[in-house]
């Protein structure tokens, strides 16, 4: 996470990790999840779904902090995130300055 000043307790904070799931066939391509993801986890996919829209794709999976913003801003119930539990998180490393 980028801070202009690293909080004093930063080393004590467990930043959660998330995994984004995309229900591509529900997507209507508004792009809100891509634009407003605070961690810029998502990008536009080149592929089309059956309705002819470009769904989002995960471009920086390691950045997801499971904030669920994509899930709440999506008007189509087409995207959600789930927590990645600790062991796996440890394996990925918990570097705050990443």
């Amino acid at each position: 996470m980028n801070f202009w000043r690293v909080p004093l307790d930063a080393h004590e904070v467990d930043v959660p990790r998330g995994e984004v799931h995309i229900l591509e066939e529900r997507c209507k391509g508004c792009g809100y999840c891509i634009e407003f993801c605070p961690k810029h986890v998502l990008g536009v996919s080149k592929k089309f779904n059956a309705k002819g829209y470009h769904p989002p794709q995960v471009v920086k999976p390691e950045e997801c902090v499971n904030c669920h913003y994509c899930e709440v801003i999506c008007p189509e119930f087409a995207i959600f995130s789930v927590p990645v539990e600790e062991e796996e998180q440890d394996a990925r490393g918990g570097d705050l300055s990443a």
Partner: peptide, 20 residues
């Protein structure tokens, strides 16, 4: 689902927040 609301329409979001 899919609902009738147009691409980019915010009603789906308002509706999702209501359900949440």
């Amino acid at each position: 689902i899919p609902h009738i609301w147009c691409p980019g329409c915010g009603i789906g979001t308002a509706f999702a927040t209501c359900l949440n």
